[in-house]
């Protein structure tokens, strides 16, 4: 029974982690940007979903849509206002641009977090779930919302896979991640590729935020932890490797769940951090990293 419980809960949380990390790794893979405002964008989406649902008489669907839209808009603003100006700046030497983007997005994330704390205070909020109630999964009482979270996470990851591997648009993204110069030489506008990847990123972060808000609840204080968690998963999986991130999300999700069930919930995240240190020492390129 306990094993089954760990299996189900671990799967749900891992799927959500995977979705959360997906956008983060995609944007690094395609445009080389480590977006440290990631957690803040997820939290913003969740809080907007909570707020909009309440505004429209508790309509969970309007809330979820508003949350995802907020993620998309914020991703665009992040790109236009923070990332683009740094990338285009002539004053910043090219070799320092990555650090500037890192710092810029970090500070932007803090600004979003503080703004959320100011307008909505930092008490956690929970997004109204799309479906309520529980069901028995092989004898384990499981909330329907947990099942929905898992299904939506996988559906979105699946769609992303299709988009990247089966469409012209996706091939352009892949090409940009491998050889951006080659892509420009073929006559493609690199900036439109970047705009596309930020749009995809915004939707992914928005959905992940809304699901997280409905499954576990979020507070503006969680922004940093969420970025760190996505970062850890991506480093563990190998920077820029989508399948690596997927695998790492499951390692992290199950390790945390096992620790919480079998050792103590107080030290839930400790083994993951230890593992991360070991990986950085022994296999710095991550589980499926190429370098």
């Amino acid at each position: 029974m306990l094993a089954l419980q760990i299996l189900i809960d671990g799967f749900a949380i891992s799927s959500l982690y995977a979705l959360g990390a997906m956008g983060f790794t995609l944007i690094f893979g395609v445009s080389g940007v480590l977006n440290l405002s990631h957690g803040a964008i997820m939290v913003l989406s969740a809080i907007i979903a909570w707020w909009a649902a309440d505004l429209f008489g508790g309509n969970a669907y309007i809330g979820a849509a508003a949350g995802v839209l907020a993620g998309l808009i914020t991703a665009f603003i992040t790109f236009r206002l923070i990332v683009r100006p740094i990338q285009n700046s002539r004053a910043i030497p090219p070799e320092e641009k990555e650090i500037f983007v890192l710092t810029g997005t970090l500070l932007w994330g803090i600004m979003i977090q503080e703004a959320l704390a100011h307008f909505f205070n930092n008490t956690p909020k929970t997004v109204r779930p799309l479906i309520e109630g529980v069901t028995q999964l092989a004898g384990v009482r499981t909330p329907l919302n947990e099942i929905l979270t898992t299904v939506v996470s996988w559906a979105v990851i699946g769609l992303l896979w299709l988009l990247v591997n089966r469409t012209r648009m996706g091939k352009r993204l892949l090409a940009a991640s491998m050889n951006p110069r080659g892509l420009t030489l073929l006559g493609f506008e690199l900036s439109s590729v970047y705009l596309l990847v930020w749009a995809i990123y915004g939707v992914l972060a928005g959905i992940a935020g809304v699901l997280l808000g409905a499954f576990l609840g979020v507070s503006s204080d969680n922004a940093g932890t969420l970025t760190a968690s996505a970062f850890s998963i991506v480093v563990l999986g190998g920077l820029g490797s989508v399948s690596g991130s997927l695998m790492a999300a499951f390692v992290v999700g199950y390790l945390e769940t096992l620790t919480a069930y079998l050792i103590s919930p107080t030290i839930r995240t400790v083994p993951v951090l230890l593992l991360l240190i070991v990986v950085v020492y022994v296999r710095p390129q991550g589980l499926l990293g190429r370098r």
């Binding site: 419980q5 979020v218 945390e256 769940t257 919480a260 069930y261 107080t266 030290i267 995240t269």
Partner: peptide, 20 residues
Amino acid sequence: HVRLSPDTTDFTPIFNKIEG
């Protein structure tokens, strides 16, 4: 007597343990 980290976001394992 269950003590949990103030950073806990997923309480599923805790409630399951208690219910047991």
